[in-house]
Design a protein around this nucleic acid. Sequence first.
DNA 1: TTGGTGATTGTTGAG
DNA 2: CTCAACAATCACCAA
Length: 104
Amino acid sequence: MPKAAVARGKTATKEKTRRTKKDPNAPKRGLSAYMFFANEQRENVREENPGVSFGEVGKILGQRWKALSEKQRMPYEAKAAADKKRYEDEKQAYNADDGEEESS
DNA sequence: TTGGTGATTGTTGAG
DNA sequence: CTCAACAATCACCAA
C-alpha cells in the first residue's frame, strides 16, 4: 500500500510543482474532481468570502469540497472521470505509432 | 500480478 | 512564470 506518498502525499508541494516531461507526446492525464468542483465553487466561495485571499479560499474550497455529499461530488467526479477518458485518448495516440508523424 | 511512483490538473494572487 | 495549500487521480512501468 502506497502510503508514504499516497498517505497524504506532498500536498505541500515543496519539491517541484511542474513535473518534468520525458515523453515525446506527454499525454497529460485528465483533470481531477477538485478541479471541476473548484471551477464552480471558486465563484461561490469567493462570493461568501469577500476579500479572502487565495489562502483562505483555497482552504475553504477544500473543506467545502468534502463538506459536500458524495452525490454532490458526483458531477465533479463524473467530470473528472470524463476528463480522464479524454486523457485516455491522448495516451492512446501517444503509444500509437502508426507512422503518422506529421511532417517532418 | 502486484505494487508505488510520478506526473498532472485547476483556483487565486502576487513579485 | 512559478509557487503556494487544497484535493483527487490513476495510468504508467517495472520486477
